[in-house]
């Protein structure tokens, strides 16, 4: 099975992506316009969202793994040394 060409992928996703960007912009506007916006601005979740947006705009990423990078940004850290109950 052959993946879509880049142009076809863009053709198919352009309007949807545009719409989602506007939704994000509107959500950020709503947060900043809200009562007691100062507390929200310092909320670590908002910081994560801004870091995620910055990740999307990086041009120094050579492989198409933005989704994975954003996923990891929003993930708890895994510690390889954790004690599994069935460790030998």
């Amino acid at each position: 099975m052959t993946p879509l060409t880049a142009k076809t992928a863009l053709d198919r996703s352009y309007l949807e992506t545009r719409c989602k960007l506007i939704e994000i912009a509107a959500n950020l506007d709503r947060i900043e316009r809200g009562a007691e916006a100062g507390a929200a601005v310092s909320d670590p979740r908002l910081k994560l969202i801004r870091e995620g947006l910055a990740l999307l705009n990086r041009t120094d990423i050579s492989t198409a793994d933005r989704a994975e990078r954003v996923q990891k940004l929003f993930s708890q850290e895994y510690e390889q040394t954790w004690s599994a109950p069935n460790a030998k």
Binding site: Q76, E77, N86, A87
Partner: peptide
């Protein structure tokens, strides 16, 4: 946000 850590833990336990 639990998925990455949890998946890695699960794979560790399976490996054991």
């Amino acid at each position: 946000d639990d998925k990455y850590k949890g998946t890695r833990m699960i794979l560790d336990m399976l490996r054991n």
